[in-house]
Design a binder for these strands. Sequence first.
DNA 1: AGCGTAATAGACAAGTTTGACTAACCTACT
DNA 2: AGTAGGTTAGTCAAACTTGTCTATTACGCT
Lengths: 196, 196
Amino acid sequence: MMILGLVSWMQPVHGYDVRRELLSWNADKWANVQPGSIYHALRKLTEEGLLREVTTEQVGSRPARTTYEITPKGQDELDNLLRGYWWEMKPVTDPFFAALSFLPALPREEAVAALRNRAAQLRAANDGVEVAAEKGWLREKPSHVRWMWELMVARNEGEIAWCERVAGLVESGVSYLPDRMRTADPGWERWREQVD
Amino acid sequence: MMILGLVSWMQPVHGYDVRRELLSWNADKWANVQPGSIYHALRKLTEEGLLREVTTEQVGSRPARTTYEITPKGQDELDNLLRGYWWEMKPVTDPFFAALSFLPALPREEAVAALRNRAAQLRAANDGVEVAAEKGWLREKPSHVRWMWELMVARNEGEIAWCERVAGLVESGVSYLPDRMRTADPGWERWREQVD
DNA sequence: AGCGTAATAGACAAGTTTGACTAACCTACT
DNA sequence: AGTAGGTTAGTCAAACTTGTCTATTACGCT
């Protein structure tokens, strides 16, 4: 759990601090932690004994803010979690896979255009990172943050090549059916017609 | 929504059929659709007028099964959704990113080992796909399914190179601090000590 | 024929996530 | 001096997800 790590690093912190840090990392995008879930998570972690409330102060008559810190048990748990994420591979969940599995529902020309567009977007993203690393905000960030972005770049490069290759295949009119069944009834093409 | 697409393709279907198809695609891994959510999704889509109940038959005294098909409105919506996924890029959510942002919490030797291990696992996965494509189950599947797996392979190749490069950097003892602050107090290393 | 296992179909409570909302305070500008 | 707009801090109901449970039938095996 991301939030546990943040508390360990920033402690003592209150929810709003965590929220700001997460947003500044754009973590709402690549982790699944929306600001709304933070407070629930903090309370749940406290309940489990991984965090501990330190103080609850109130300035003027604003909402009270509760400050948390990590417990030894919480450190242990965090250690285990991190180790898990470092050593085990969780298959990535990507909505584009869902789209891809319905490729036959799209007119071929559109699929080709979309794939080329995707390649272009990926290239633009990669260029953006490169610029940021050389003269932008990335220079101010620790090395491992730069490495994170470079990991995206590395994956994207693979994907760009793939997009172009597959765009070519789709364009060439190659059948979607498995090799064995090339002669069989192309039911999918009919499905496409209905969709349109 | 994945499920809408499946219904459109397999209609008329009942929940259990959808579930089997999803499991056979391993979609519980890369989409976020666990078997438990299917029935709720079907009911919700029906309520929104994107699906329509066809029949509710009962064989013997088993649980009744309700069959669904897609409505014209549902087809429109599906079209829009698919188009969205094809043309817009949603940043991928990957728990490894979370792990990576806490790199300084790990002893350097362990990070290096974990990175090399990750590269090895990725290589193994890629080899597995290659074998499946040449003589395994992948040959029976439609081309775009093979392309899906090849997309994973392409991304993985980028990631393998990255793992090895970063492993080298971490091993070399390069500082995690940003260039500008190399002389400043290495607070993170201290944080690591506490973790340990 | 009898018995254990697997498949069929879905319900459901408990837990999580989310976006929208509140409400006070600051601050910069007219 | 007033006020529009942002920041601070967190609450909350509604929606969604999940794993687990139930109960029946089909199938294979001795």
